[in-house]
Amino acid sequence: MSELGFEGKGPLREAWELFLESSIGKAGLIILSIFALMAIFSFVPPMIDPMYHPMKGVDPEITTSQPPSLRHWLGTDFMGRDILSQLLAGARVAFLVGITAALMSIILGTFLGMLAGYFGGVVDTLLMRTADVIMVLPTLLVILVLASLFKGLSIWSIVIIIALFRWPGVSRVIRAQTLSLKNRPFVEAAKALGASHLRIMMRHLLPNLVPLAFLYMTFRVTAAIVIEAALAFLGFGDPTTVSWGMMLQWVWKTGHMFKAPYWLLPPGICISLITLSFYMIGRAMEQVLDPRLRKDWEG
């Protein structure tokens, strides 16, 4: 305590500083920022030359898949499209799908979990039984059925379906946390002050739930990216979007699986690395939230 008083350093700022102390978290952030740069730079190649457009741009001199060259750093696909620009565009799609789907499922899961935990009773039973039903449905299978029903799905409907299928896990965890929070004296004090249910939930419960929700979001991002890749690989992706899963599907369908490693490996490695980076960030956040997991913890 200084004479100047306390600087307003909230627990979230403290958590961020703790996060930066963890090397696994920093590594995850670095890998993730590389992908973010890739997504940003995905707009550059088509501007240099229209033949670098990931979808429509075809090199007029090439008709078969070519290995890397100066003109095409990662080579081309079967019809002469540039693999590097497809890879960059794929990063953009991965972020779009991963983050929006995860964000939507987290927001849904957090609010429904909080409502169930706070009000209990009938609300709790209804919400949690719904969650149970959704949780036991095999996500991929249901999406495949829907995709064949509607003759292919756009990237946004895939995002929404992933979000709708992935909230129950989050809401269970948030509900449990809400149950332990709602009888804490600071919540009772708010009640004794005459605070409304809405105020108690938004001002007292939600901030205490956000770190946990954020942690689960990193895991959900991974799941969403993998589901999208799997769908695309199986041929149920959005045919107008270039995602990494889509690239893999083209490799496989055109019979280049074992002939063109320059085409097969980049999207495969990218999928693994981006999921790894979110996973690492999640692990570091877990350490921040649960001090028992910290290795360098000094009692």
Binding site: L12, F186, A192, L193, P207, N208
Partner: peptide, 21 residues
């Protein structure tokens, strides 16, 4: 009525929301 009657709890570590100044 809640304005007229107030309570102070035993545990000062549990009775204040850590996310508020």
């Amino acid at each position: 009525f809640r304005r007229e009657v107030q309570i102070i709890f035993q545990d000062p570590y549990q009775s204040l929301n850590p996310y508020l100044s």
